[in-house]
Simulated assay, not measured.
Amino acid sequence: MEDIRELLAKMEKTREKKLVEHKKHLASEEYQSALRLLNVVTTDFIKGMKACSMYCSRGAEFRDNSLSLSHIDDYFMSAIMIMIMLTEGGINPAKREIRYLIDSSMRYLFVDQQLWRGSIKEKLMYFDKKVDKSNIKYINDIDLHMIKSSALKSAFRSEYKTTYYKACEYVHASTKQIEERFSLYEQGITIGLDRAEQLQEVAELLSEVYSSLLVFTFHAAGVSTIGDLMVDTLSPQDGWVYNGNQYISEIDRHFDYKHERKELIVQLEETRTNRAWPNKALQRTSR
């Protein structure tokens, strides 16, 4: 028994030492920078979604019969919970929630576009009976009509698939997940003792996921609503990080024909260039 007590006492001292070291790491500029990045990626996503929700309230019947738009509050909840999990060291559970977001949002838009004027009841029935929940093939059928460039549409679909598979590695047991965990154990990093580079990685993944959700939700809301949203509210906000995303920027560019932009096009294009994603936009806000 004495040997066991000594072993437990030694383990506790080792654990306490790691906790002291980790507190120092949490206060480091490297970790705080990753935390700021996570914060801006999350808060600006919520800002964009809230603004979209407000503009969609002008067509309440259409909004309430849209799978995509009726799940905006669900996206808020997930974004907040992901933030909490990540700041508490729960990186893998957060990635599983991320996978839910990237998966469900695409399918909701697919159903909305298949039954554009259908009721929520009809869409739910279609979702239940007609949509294959184990396949993301529907990304190829999504109508990205506010992204005019064929090359950008192709790039978006390709990036979506890459992001989806990154998130999937943490839903079910995978070789990558197991190898990562063994590697961390060897470094003395256990649950709750995650490092800045891990937080940075997942914050960058979130930026990709949230930009995809915004693209899907904007297409679900329709051209008229998003035209007003971008021109009047989101595009003028130089600090809104997602303006720097190439797909959101292209959606914004879709509305350059509007009268109020005729004398601002040159200046607006220069602004878009300076909002390049993610090197300038995200790094600028993470400092």
Score class of each variant (00 low, 15 high):
101 L>A: 08
102 I>Q: 01
138 Y>D: 04
105 S>F: 00
145 H>Y: 14
90 G>T: 00
121 K>H: 10
139 I>D: 01
117 R>A: 13
106 M>E: 04
123 K>S: 04
120 I>S: 11
90 G>C: 05
125 M>A: 14
123 K>H: 07
89 G>C: 04
149 S>G: 05
96 R>H: 05
124 L>I: 08
95 K>Q: 10
87 T>M: 14
95 K>Y: 02
145 H>K: 11
111 V>N: 00
142 I>R: 02
92 N>P: 04
112 D>H: 14
92 N>S: 11
88 E>A: 13
107 R>F: 09
92 N>G: 01
89 G>W: 07
149 S>Y: 06
130 K>H: 07
135 N>Q: 06
86 L>R: 06
147 I>L: 13
125 M>Q: 14
112 D>V: 14
148 K>Q: 12
107 R>V: 11
94 A>R: 09
144 L>V: 08
131 V>G: 01
92 N>D: 15
132 D>I: 10
133 K>C: 01
146 M>N: 07
140 N>K: 15
132 D>Q: 11
142 I>S: 03
130 K>N: 11
120 I>K: 14
97 E>D: 09
125 M>C: 06
141 D>V: 06
129 K>L: 14
101 L>S: 00
102 I>E: 01
147 I>W: 09
108 Y>A: 11
143 D>S: 07
148 K>L: 08
89 G>S: 08
120 I>L: 15
143 D>C: 03
117 R>S: 14
103 D>P: 05
116 W>D: 02
89 G>V: 05
122 E>C: 08
116 W>N: 05
94 A>D: 12
132 D>S: 13
85 M>V: 00
109 L>K: 02
123 K>D: 04
97 E>R: 12
122 E>A: 10
94 A>W: 09
138 Y>Q: 09
141 D>P: 06
107 R>D: 10
130 K>I: 02
110 F>V: 02
102 I>T: 08
142 I>N: 00
87 T>F: 04
148 K>C: 02
108 Y>R: 12
124 L>F: 07
87 T>E: 15
86 L>A: 07
127 F>M: 15
104 S>E: 13
94 A>I: 12
143 D>E: 12
94 A>E: 12
148 K>P: 01
128 D>W: 02
101 L>C: 11
98 I>W: 09
116 W>C: 02
109 L>P: 00
95 K>I: 11
136 I>P: 00
96 R>F: 07
104 S>R: 06
130 K>M: 13
100 Y>S: 09
117 R>G: 06
93 P>C: 04
117 R>N: 15
132 D>K: 14
103 D>K: 10
129 K>P: 06
86 L>W: 05
102 I>G: 03
141 D>E: 15
134 S>Q: 10
100 Y>C: 04
147 I>D: 03
91 I>D: 05
111 V>L: 01
122 E>N: 12
105 S>T: 07
109 L>N: 01
125 M>I: 11
107 R>P: 02
133 K>H: 11
92 N>H: 08
98 I>S: 12
137 K>R: 10
126 Y>F: 15
93 P>D: 09
87 T>L: 13
85 M>R: 08
133 K>F: 03
146 M>T: 09
127 F>P: 03
117 R>V: 07
105 S>I: 03
148 K>H: 08
143 D>M: 00
89 G>F: 06
114 Q>T: 13
